[in-house]
């Protein structure tokens, strides 16, 4: 609104003032349109679902329905779940996912950089890495539960395994992509091998590593949930399994909504971290963002 008032006062400069004002209005209008369309899509989806299921009790069992999901969430929040309070279930799953994510990420970065920087290590370990990477790692969940029991340790291990490889390969590739000029420059400036790794290789590889974290956190949640599925006494995965066992489709959906919220929150934090660590980069995005 402020952009409009000067028009009458500074008559001579009306042309230059007008352009940004109308541009802003255009941008605002466009944003409004996008949001309206998003709302419309949501309404059609949810409303369609609700109408399609209606009060048909067979369909409710098969598909669940939005009002039922909200109801289920309400019950869980106010009365707790069959496994204990809802907060505890979320906490357990998050704990597994986060601890495993952190350990897997750190291990992946350390191993990726070490193998990327030290040719001998890369030569020795490359066949092992290839074999480990080719097996479907989710199966290791069963192995871990047999070996380490139903507690959170087995889930953390599964999460570590799932997270590690993605981060590892990105860190490794990131090291190989470092501009050789930068390494030569830092070396001539007096950097030791470790200093060059710390000041040149690591920051350069971080572009790659951070990109892998978005995907990796998704893997961490999957690992925790699947681990709980395979055998646990607590957690969102177990909650889903119970809901499935009692033909409570609304329960499955409700747990999924919770996980969606958690994943979005984590994504937000990772993006914050990314912007913080990569603020040295020139703005380079073109095309639409997701």
């Amino acid at each position: 609104m402020a952009a409009v008032t000067p028009l009458t006062k500074i008559s001579g400069k009306s042309e230059t003032v007008k352009t940004p004002g109308s541009y802003q209005a255009k941008v605002r209008k466009h944003k409004l349109l996008v949001h309206a369309a998003q709302l419309a899509v949501l309404t059609v989806l949810i409303g369609g679902w609700q109408l399609f299921v209606g009060n048909d009790s067979r369909k409710v069992i098969l598909y669940g329905k939005p009002s039922g999901i909200v109801n289920q969430l309400h019950i869980w929040v106010t009365q707790g779940t069959a496994l204990g309070s809802l907060g505890d279930q979320i906490k357990v799953t998050l704990e597994e996912a986060f601890i495993g994510f952190i350990i897997g990420t750190v291990l992946g970065i350390v191993c990726g950089i070490a193998l990327g920087r030290i040719r001998f290590l890369a030569e020795v370990f490359s066949p092992y890495i290839k074999v480990l990477n080719s097996i479907p790692r989710i199966v290791l969940g069963s192995v871990f539960i047999l070996a380490f029991g139903l507690g959170i340790e087995s889930k953390i291990l599964l999460v570590i395994v799932l997270v590690f490889f993605g981060v590892f390969f990105n860190a490794f590739q990131g090291v190989r992509e470092v501009d050789r000029n930068l390494i030569a420059n830092a070396t001539i400036l007096g950097g030791s091998r470790w200093q060059v790794t710390r000041h040149v290789v690591l920051p350069s590889a971080f572009t790659w590593i951070i990109a892998s974290l978005h995907v990796s956190f998704g893997f961490a949640l999957i690992g925790a949930i699947v681990g709980e599925f395979l055998g646990a006494s607590q957690g969102l995965g177990q909650l889903i399994k119970q809901a499935q066992g009692t033909f409570n489709a609304n329960g499955v959906w409700a747990a999924m909504v919770i996980m969606g919220v958690v994943a979005l929150a984590a994504e937000f934090l990772i993006t914050r971290l990314e912007n913080r660590l990569l603020r040295w980069r020139p703005p380079q995005l073109s095309g639409p963002e997701l």
């Binding site: 000029n181 930068l182 030569a184 420059n185 007096g190 950097g191 000041h199 040295w280």
Partner: peptide, 26 residues
């Protein structure tokens, strides 16, 4: 020995000050 490269070899993730201070820091 000092080396000025043909292509940019200053570290893009360090500020100008940190880039210049790099040698003494090393």
């Amino acid at each position: 020995v000092g080396f000025v490269f043909q292509n940019d070899a200053v570290l893009p993730w360090k500020s100008v000050l940190d880039n210049v201070a790099l040698g003494p820091r090393f």
